[in-house]
């Protein structure tokens, strides 16, 4: 009997140890971005806050306006990304300067939303775009919990709600068009293209006028790399971008879970051990004490 009891504790201990000891590098290879992944380069030093991108995004994606009453009149005034707003311009300030920052899906190389999505409604598609397929979505909103940028938004007021997020206007590709926001930007504050080219352009700008920028290129390594890159005159904290490390967001969870569930061996072994012990101790199941 002592043996069985010890065995039980050992089995449980092994599972716990699996959780504890697995390290990211062993358990999981992070996804990296490909050179021709489609992305955006947003340069906060160029943006003038005209919001042409917000308007053209609405039109390109057929999204209704987000109407708010202000001073007795209705305005299209989203305060954040929401169920019908896939990009938004916000104002930032670091105390001495202020400016604008555009928000939209960052199209991570290794997206947290796709990692947690139960049936793959959010998934990586061609050219690295994080796509959404509503037919596989149950509306659990785990993507919203997982996304470090708070990008996926839920249509709270709809009877058949969906998750809404930028998909880099992939429905326009067939017509030879790219993301609508980049198309209309009057100052090329946001440009679209292959990530490798955008990265090269970002570094060219940094090299040309190093005094104009602070903090390098956001998204080059942050969160395992994103297809949407940012340049800022004041670092990225004031712009509301989270200080992510080089590890992609899913690394920790997936490596812990992979550690535990590697090949589903541990659960099967544990089940066998439990079943055998339950059989051995079936007398206890009838209320008898050894």
């Amino acid at each position: 009997m002592t043996l069985t009891r010890r065995g039980a504790l050992q089995a449980l201990g092994a599972a716990a140890a699996g959780a504890a000891l697995a390290t990211p590098a062993e358990a999981r290879t992070p996804h990296r971005s490909a050179p021709d992944d489609l992305g955006l380069l947003y340069d906060a030093t160029r943006c003038i806050g005209c919001r042409a991108c917000v308007t053209s995004c609405r039109e390109a994606n057929g999204e209704p306006r987000d109407v708010t009453m202000m001073a007795g009149a209705p305005y299209d005034a989203p305060v954040d990304l929401n169920g019908h707003t896939l990009t938004v311009i916000k104002q930032w300030s670091d105390g001495t300067r202020d400016g604008f920052v555009k928000a939209q899906c960052m199209h991570c190389a290794d997206p947290a939303c796709a990692s947690v999505c139960m049936m793959g409604a959010l998934h990586k598609g061609p050219r690295g775009v994080v796509e959404y397929s509503v037919d596989r979505c149950v509306g659990c909103r785990n993507c919203q919990i997982a996304c470090p940028f708070n990008v996926p938004k839920f249509q709270w007021t709809s009877a058949a709600p969906q998750i809404a997020k930028c998909e880099l206007c992939r429905h326009r590709w067939a017509a030879g068009k790219g993301p609508a926001c980049a198309e209309v930007c009057p100052r090329q504050a946001v440009i679209a293209g292959p990530r490798s080219e955008l990265l090269a352009e970002a570094h060219r700008r940094l090299a040309a006028t190093p005094q104009a920028y602070q903090g390098g290129v956001y998204g080059e390594t942050e969160g395992g790399g994103t297809a949407c890159l940012y340049l800022s005159p004041a670092g990225f904290g004031p712009l509301g971008l989270p200080p992510l490390g080089r590890e992609p967001a899913p690394a920790l969870v997936e490596s812990v879970q992979h550690g535990i569930y590697q090949g589903f061996v541990a659960p099967v072994v544990l089940f066998g051990a439990f079943a055998v012990m339950a059989w051995k101790n079936r007398a206890a199941g009838q209320g008898e004490e050894p």
Partner: peptide, 28 residues
């Protein structure tokens, strides 16, 4: 019963621990 007990022990071990793993993804 032993088979059921086995499953009845394994399943909560898995999902109760995974409930915690859910919030690991919340990161920062």
């Amino acid at each position: 019963l032993p088979i059921l007990v086995g499953a009845g022990l394994l399943l909560p071990t898995m999902h109760q621990s995974s409930l915690g793993a859910l919030m690991m993804m919340a990161g920062l």
